[in-house]
Simulated assay, not measured.
Amino acid sequence: MSNFLTASIGRKFIMSISGLFLMMFICVHLGINLLLIFDDSGNLFNQGAHFMATNPLIKVMEPLLGLGFIIHIIWSFLLSYQNYKARPVGYAQSNASYSSTWASRNMLILGALVLVFLVLHIMNFFWKIKVSGDPLLEHVLVNGEHMENTYALVSDLFINSAVYGIIYILGGILLGLHLGHGFWSSFQTLGLANKVWLARLQFVGKIFAVMVALGFSIIPLYFLIKF
């Protein structure tokens, strides 16, 4: 087992599994976040955020999610370093663009930029909600139930900080570029993409990447334009 994890195929397997796990979380997270633009009262988003914060299953998944991020990040650096060491000296890269996409050749850079965006996201939202608190999170009553006004915290930052809105949009685009390659390559590593299915998965991956990028970008655009 230890030999498998240290081998190139083992590291790619870990990257694929952790990547698919994180992609499922991204879909759920995006779905909740899109509630921001469907109800200006904030009740709909507050209910979604409250459910995510109080659901026992989600509470169990949170540490697993954090572990998934850590594993994915560490293994990406290990795999990139392994590939760098295995690369022949003087390796000609002039025709690289013909055999691979820009995103596939720069997955580590894209991942690092997404990580910067993730840290900012944690500082502005997750940390305040889970640890430090914020005056904007004062409890509100929604359908007879008391819950934190998470909508006020999120919407206030988007409305009053165009800079953060632009950063959020860039983060969504970078995440989309990262997922465009990561989606189909994860299935390929797991042996689930033969010659016929590879092209189909690449197509689905592009659609998925565009939907994620647009989904995360439309939220700050909505607040910047409407408010």
Rank of each mutant, 00 (worst) to 15 (best):
S8E: 15
I14D: 10
I14V: 15
L22M: 11
L30C: 02
L30H: 07
G31F: 00
L36K: 09
F38N: 12
S41R: 03
S41G: 11
G42M: 03
N43E: 13
N43Y: 07
L44K: 11
Q47Y: 01
G48W: 01
F51H: 06
M52W: 08
T54D: 11
I58D: 02
L64Q: 00
G68L: 01
F69G: 06
I70K: 04
F77Y: 14
F77L: 12
Y81D: 13
Q82V: 11
V89W: 05
G90L: 04
Y91L: 14
Q93L: 13
Q93R: 15
S97V: 06
S97W: 09
Y98D: 15
S100L: 04
W102N: 01
S104D: 07
M107E: 13
L110Y: 06
A112C: 13
A112N: 09
F117M: 12
L120Y: 02
L120H: 00
M123C: 13
N124G: 14
F125A: 11
K130N: 13
K130H: 13
S132E: 05
S132W: 06
E138W: 00
L141T: 12
V142F: 05
V142G: 09
N143F: 06
G144R: 07
E145L: 10
H146C: 00
E148T: 08
N149L: 02
Y151V: 08
V154H: 05
S155L: 03
D156K: 03
A162W: 00
V163F: 03
G165T: 01
I167A: 10
L170G: 14
G176L: 02
H178G: 06
L179I: 12
L179T: 10
G180M: 06
G182N: 06
S186Y: 00
F187I: 03
T189H: 09
L190G: 05
L190Q: 03
G191I: 05
K195Y: 08
V196G: 03
V196M: 07
V196Y: 09
W197N: 12
L198W: 04
R200T: 02
V204N: 01
G205W: 01
K206I: 10
K206E: 07
K206A: 06
F208H: 05
A213S: 11
A213M: 02
P220S: 14
K226S: 12
